[in-house]
Design a protein around this nucleic acid. Sequence first.
DNA 1: CCAATAGTGTCTCTGAGACATTATCCC
DNA 2: GGGATAATGTCTCAGAGACACTATTGG
Lengths: 217, 217
Amino acid sequence: MDPIICTVDVVLLTLQGESLQVALIRREFEPHQGELALPGGFVRANEDDDTRAAALRMLRSKTGISAPYLEQLHTFSGRTRDVRGWSLSVVYYALVPHQVMSAEVVLLALDQLPPLPFDHRAMVDLAEQRLRSKSQYSSLPCHLLEQPFTLPQLQRVYEILLGEALNKVSFRRKIDEMAMLEPVDGEFTVGQAHRPAQLYRLKPAFGQQLQLLARGL
Amino acid sequence: MDPIICTVDVVLLTLQGESLQVALIRREFEPHQGELALPGGFVRANEDDDTRAAALRMLRSKTGISAPYLEQLHTFSGRTRDVRGWSLSVVYYALVPHQVMSAEVVLLALDQLPPLPFDHRAMVDLAEQRLRSKSQYSSLPCHLLEQPFTLPQLQRVYEILLGEALNKVSFRRKIDEMAMLEPVDGEFTVGQAHRPAQLYRLKPAFGQQLQLLARGL
DNA sequence: CCAATAGTGTCTCTGAGACATTATCCC
DNA sequence: GGGATAATGTCTCAGAGACACTATTGG
């Protein structure tokens, strides 16, 4: 039986201004050396406890990012996706606020990607689909903002992900229903010529644990 | 680098009467020879085009089932889950009407499972969770019924999966909204002493393609 | 005091569920 | 005709969104 090539890839997403962006790095080795691709690499049986640990190792070593929101996305596999042979990639997606994105990566808007090697484009597309879909009924978008943040900021993030304007009253009812935020003393002044907004942070329990809504958005 | 053991396991679910059941087989080889476990096995690089094809091969060879609803669930991995070494299992779940379940498998209710080898119990639990969750907002439960079926039958399936009685009018509005069913001429008589129900089948496009609801259930 | 944005109270209208009515079978 | 279940029409009530009003800042 031929050996199977086991890799992990990470779709690292962030929100820069109004656009959803993915972090790409230049490949160090063949195949596709020098091309922009997702951070990833071989699973190391002697180093990694599991594929999640492998994904965290890829992120730390290739982008310097250490504690993102991270979730398994899908496993891609097949005979033809890598010229080196029958291969399998366990793909994770990660969300970070753009402030923590390191200078080691190239950030590109999802709608302006060049051709990517392997099936990395399909991975990015699936991650985008998952993120937008989960934004309809979960607290996932919180992880794109640096804490603490204000409710108007959070609402803007949801609106960008869902591609539609949201009703302010309803939005706040839903956020309240999720019961994941707690107010922080101190405000959002920064000398803006208007009423400052209350700052919030995620309650400690919601580091990786998502909160879901019974009836969506 | 140590080699990584690549396997595929399948959580094959069906509805027998009122209870959700999983198909188990007796393991042919060590480790855990003779114990009840999920159908699964090594990915074969020379036979399988990808892990989905491997899952279909496992199902066909170990249970005789050939065209189920099949979807990737999760990839389990780690150093300790298999005594033979660092291993990885791409897990799929499948749904079939109980009429097509073969006699080669042992069917057990999910709430009456014996201890299972490896992390098979976690796989079953995750599959159950996924099935019940998707039943809230998709056409997934249709694949537990043999076609054609009636709307009262389908409603009963949803009620079992969701664990609550559903409103008939609302249920029919939602099913209609999904636009996945088409009526079949002929009825559900079988000599029952009451009005026969209209039979429906999935429209051809919805073999593997799920239909989703905007606002659930 | 004005402009701008945050935050909240309230009214309305859509849509989900309760109920009732009609339909169709077997006895 | 009676009993049983299917199918559908309609009323009611809850919840989502529209709107408006108050609050709080800087200029």
